[in-house]
């Protein structure tokens, strides 16, 4: 049993095996994400009823909350992958972790910008240095720091290790983001979705809301996968199979 697991792990941690097997995934993930996000946003913008207190500005929630979720989930994934890479010296984990960075950073930026836009009609201000907003800005800065570390190192392997360590240190920011709305007085409303309570949302708002979250998850997975496949080609370009693959691309173009 254990040996079977080790064999399975070794097979999937081989960049070549992963590259070969993952070919159809990004295609299907991408199409599923496109359909689900399109349905969710048309539903959220056009068919979901207007909110009693906030009027139509609440419709920003259908992109604000999914992007905020993803920016944190992707950060957690980077930290776990970094740990796996450091402990088991697994190249592929580092490749995935690196290519998570731009996707996660774009999600953090989207959450911050849509939050600022939503804040204006709701709170009367674009920005306030309160706990939730500041800790989300720190998350974006962590992403930028991770990317800068990768680019600063001459050897990509050093960048992998340095970024993994920074990612692990930065994990303390995740509970701060989550509990910031409870620990401090903040403008930000508490979490809409809780595991312990029924959601305080009408079904006609809740369904597109949950679909949007699912769609953002699938889209982010597709984007990270596409990027990881290219990272594999770039980092393994001296091996024979990558050269064959690039030759095939060059002829196809």
């Amino acid at each position: 049993m254990w040996q079977a697991f080790v064999r399975w792990f070794h097979k999937w941690s081989s960049p070549k095996w992963f590259y070969t097997m993952s070919q159809p995934w990004s295609f299907w993930l991408g199409w599923a994400a496109t359909l689900i996000i399109a349905t969710a946003l048309v539903w959220g913008l056009l068919f979901a009823p207007v909110e009693r207190l906030q009027g139509n500005s609440y419709r920003i929630i259908f992109i604000h909350v999914p992007s905020a979720f993803l920016s944190q989930a992707i950060y957690a994934a980077i930290a776990v992958l970094g740990l796996v890479g450091l402990v088991w010296k697994m190249k592929l984990a580092f490749f995935v972790a690196k290519q998570c960075i731009p996707v996660g950073a774009s999600m953090a930026l989207l959450a911050l910008v849509t939050g600022a836009i939503w804040g204006k009609p709701t709170w009367g201000t674009w920005w306030e240095w309160d706990a939730r907003l500041t800790s989300m800005l720190v998350l974006l800065l962590l992403y930028l720091g991770l990317w800068a570390l990768h680019n600063a190192m001459e050897r990509p392997e050093s960048g992998d290790r340095a970024a993994a360590i920074l990612a692990l240190v930065g994990v303390v920011n995740l509970p701060i983001i989550k509990f910031s709305v409870e620990w401090w007085n903040t403008l930000h409303q508490p979490a809409t979705l809780k595991f312990t309570e029924a959601p305080p949302m009408h079904t006609s708002m809740l369904i597109p809301f949950l679909m949007a979250i699912l769609g953002f998850y699938l889209a982010s997975m597709a984007w990270v996968l596409m990027r990881t496949r290219l990272e594999i080609l770039q980092r393994e370009r001296k091996s024979r199979w990558v050269e064959d693959e690039l030759n095939r691309f060059s002829e196809g173009q």
């Binding site: 009027g55 139509n56 500005s57 604000h64 731009p102 984007w223």
Partner: peptide, 23 residues
Amino acid sequence: MGDHGVYVWSAYAVGAAVIAFNV
């Protein structure tokens, strides 16, 4: 969008730009 059109549509425009970047 009531009187919130500017806010809703600019937020969705930024969303579209982020998706375009990732694609």
